[in-house]
Simulated assay, not measured.
Amino acid sequence: TLKALNAFQFDEQIGRARVVHEPLGVVAMITPWNWPLNQVTAKVAPALAAGDTMILKPSEESPGCAVILAEILDAAGVPAGVFNLVNGDGAGVGSALSAHPDVDMVSFTGSTRAGIAIAQNAAATVKRVHQELGGKAANLVIEGA
């Protein structure tokens, strides 16, 4: 939420260490067909908040919500190049994004089969990969973590 973002300390002193949270860079986002607007915004909103640029590849089966969101972001004044939308299939576009040397992170929600291919494609450039595969990547964050 906006309240959490406003309270987040991007630069903080912890003991004698200074901790600075910086943007990752270019984040490729590959989203599934089910609940498309939620899946897209769950990736886009944090990347915008963190100052990252992004390339979204929505599912080829349900790209409409992503196209409308792209129009909304443009109308809202998001600078050109911050949010980028590419359409296509996973084997072609998803593979190219996950292997591209200028992509710093891949965020993927979908099948285990596709997740394995994405991880293998990303390995050559040692980029960060975050995946939710088959709804089985839940996280538990305890107080004080």
Rank of each mutant, 00 (worst) to 15 (best):
A50Y: 07
L24A: 10
T112D: 09
N6C: 11
I72F: 14
V20L: 15
L133K: 00
M105A: 13
K43F: 00
A137Y: 02
A114Q: 08
V82Y: 08
I30M: 11
P23F: 09
G81S: 13
K136C: 00
A123R: 08
I55D: 06
I142A: 08
S95L: 13
V44G: 05
M105N: 02
R16P: 03
S62D: 07
K57N: 03
C65H: 07
G144R: 01
N121C: 12
Q39E: 05
G110N: 02
A145P: 01
L56R: 07
V40D: 15
I118R: 04
I142E: 07
G94I: 06
A75R: 14
E143P: 00
L133V: 05
P79Y: 11
T53D: 09
S107N: 02
W33G: 10
L140G: 00
V86F: 07
A49P: 00
P58M: 13
D102Y: 00
G25P: 02
P46Y: 12
E60M: 12
S98Q: 06
W35D: 15
E61I: 03
A66K: 10
G135C: 08
Q9Y: 01
I72T: 09
M29E: 10
E143T: 09
S59I: 08
A80G: 04
S111I: 10
L73G: 03
L85M: 12
N121S: 15
R16A: 15
M29N: 01
L97Q: 01
I14C: 15
A42N: 10
G51H: 06
P36Q: 11
A122N: 04
A50K: 03
V67T: 06
N38R: 03
S98K: 00
G81C: 14
V103H: 04
D102R: 02
N34I: 01
A49R: 01
L69E: 12
N34D: 07
G15K: 04
A91F: 10
E143S: 13
H21R: 14
C65E: 13
L37Y: 10
A75T: 09
N6T: 08
G135M: 05
P23R: 05
W33V: 12
I55A: 03
N34M: 03
D102K: 01
D89L: 13
G25W: 10
A42E: 14
A138V: 06
D89F: 15
G92Q: 15
S107P: 01
S95I: 07
P63S: 00
D74V: 10
G88V: 04
A122I: 03
P46L: 14
A47K: 02
L37M: 14
F83V: 05
K136F: 01
V129Y: 08
A119H: 03
G81W: 13
G90F: 02
F10V: 14
I55M: 06
V129T: 08
A138P: 07
E71H: 07
I30G: 05
R113F: 09
D102Q: 04
H100D: 11
P23A: 07
V86W: 08
I14A: 15
A96F: 14
G110C: 08
L69D: 11
N139H: 04
T41L: 15
V40P: 03
F10C: 12
L5F: 12
G88C: 09
I72D: 08
D89C: 06
A80S: 11
M105S: 04
G51M: 11
L97T: 00
A96L: 15
F10H: 13
I142N: 02
V86H: 06
G115F: 01
V103R: 05
G64T: 05
G94S: 10
D89K: 08
E132N: 04
A28G: 12
